[in-house]
Design a protein around this nucleic acid. Structure first.
Lengths: 137, 137
DNA sequence: ATTATTGCAAAAGTTTTGCATGCCG
DNA sequence: CGGCATGCAAAACTTTTGCAATAAT
């Protein structure tokens, strides 16, 4: 039924995402995979990332800065997105998302599966670059 | 300095966004604009949406379902995104986003400008379609 | 007159897809 | 074998951009 077969490529993609602590885009994963599977295609990477996200084994992070990012850590947590360099950073858990979700479910006509908080701003590194070089404008 | 000139097209785009209560994509706005300005180009729509969002006169909503959506209502509020039909719906304000932002700022190395909560799930209409027609699978 | 803005078209970037082949069970 | 997954390439989409013409101040 499930019709799911093992594949070395898919396994390598999950492993790669689990090991790294950044939040790469599909093409960043592709670049990495290329070292292990010189002939792997970008299509395969996209197909697997999409499948894995559907299976809930990885998480897709939509940033609005061009491409989707992916996260191998599926533990519920929120992200910060730098408007300057586009980098995605994990935020500490200081809020219980499931509580917010339940609160919202009560007053919504539909099924709410998940909720997450996106923080936007300028990361520490980019702040330094801004302050350092150019003082005037 | 600001170097900003009036343009009938840009004005019409803002007006369109303010009037409608849905959250259209660039091409949806383009379709509408086409009625008023038969020769308006998609590039102009994109340029103005981007400019208006930068000016803070409209809001860009990143959904992860293909294209960006835009909102003429800049009053701080959160959105629900239907995984099924991609529709974007306003959520009631039952949470103070600025409080969450301040809370997060305290423990983050960088500047947090804004935060918003995205809710994902299946909207009321799609739920009906799911339950109604197909029972088996 | 000066310069922002437009329309048009081409280009860039991301993601999807068709198809023959290969690999897993 | 039967069917899912792959590699390759083409296509589909969304968004950006160069440039000459146009419109606003």
């Amino acid at each position: 039924m499930a019709g799911l077969k093992h594949s070395r490529q898919r396994e390598a993609i999950v492993t790669n995402l689990r090991m790294r602590k950044d939040h790469p885009t599909a093409s960043m994963v592709y670049t990495d995979m290329r070292k292990e599977f010189p002939n792997i295609s970008l299509g395969t990477v996209y197909r697997n990332l999409s499948l894995l996200a559907d299976l809930g084994q990885i998480r897709k992070i939509t940033t609005g800065t061009g491409a989707e990012h992916y996260d191998g850590d599926i533990h519920p947590h929120n992200h910060f997105i730098c408007k300057c360099c586009g980098k995605v950073t994990d935020m500490n858990d200081f809020i219980d998302n499931s509580k917010i979700r339940d609160l919202a479910s009560g007053q919504f006509d539909g099924r709410i599966d998940e909720c997450n908080i996106q923080f936007y701003g300028v990361c520490g590194e980019c702040l330094k670059k801004e302050e350092g070089p150019a003082a005037t404008s």
